[in-house]
């Protein structure tokens, strides 16, 4: 009884005094529904899919230096082999290579870390900072799982 009376008085007062209206657009509250991703997964492919979502890239492929696919989000073995071959070729021409960025059908980003070649496909060019974060995420995952 007292609660409903309080509510009524509050509503009338708000109208009369023109205050306390702190409602905001529903579009804003919809946008705020985002929750940070929990990257952890026992399955590496599942982890890479989550990583792809986190960093807004289209595909992530990890191969060894011979082009054998270790893990991939798209199961395209040919693409993994191609990326390792491309890395090895450019590395033979340009010493101290860190990251290769190629613009062709979006962006293709290739880099090597600990005898593994990482191949990312994205709609936009990633900065070195973003690539380093992806490497760190993968390293953290591998150190937890292995």
């Amino acid at each position: 009884m007292f609660k409903s009376f309080t509510k009524m008085i509050t509503k009338i007062s708000n109208k009369l005094l023109n205050i306390e209206d702190q409602s905001y657009d529903s579009g804003l509250s919809n946008m705020m529904c985002y929750k940070p991703l929990n990257l952890y997964s026992k399955d590496i492919t599942d982890f890479l899919k989550k990583l792809r979502e986190k960093h807004l890239v289209n595909d992530i492929i990890i191969t060894d230096l011979d082009g054998i696919v270790i893990a991939s989000t798209n199961r395209n073995l040919k693409e993994g082999f191609k990326s390792a071959a491309m890395y090895n070729y450019i590395n033979s021409e340009i010493k101290e290579l860190s990251i290769i960025l190629i613009e062709a059908n979006g962006w293709q980003i290739i880099f090597k870390k600990d005898k593994k070649v990482y191949f990312l496909k994205a709609n936009d060019r990633l900065t070195k900072m973003e690539v380093l974060v992806i490497i760190k995420d993968i390293e953290n995952y591998l150190s937890c799982v292995v």
Partner: peptide, 19 residues
């Protein structure tokens, strides 16, 4: 204001992407 809070939220998401 709503536009400012929305943009701050986007900045927060980007920060989280960078760990």
């Amino acid at each position: 204001t709503a536009p400012s809070v929305a943009d701050a939220f986007k900045a927060k998401i980007v920060a989280e992407r960078l760990n």
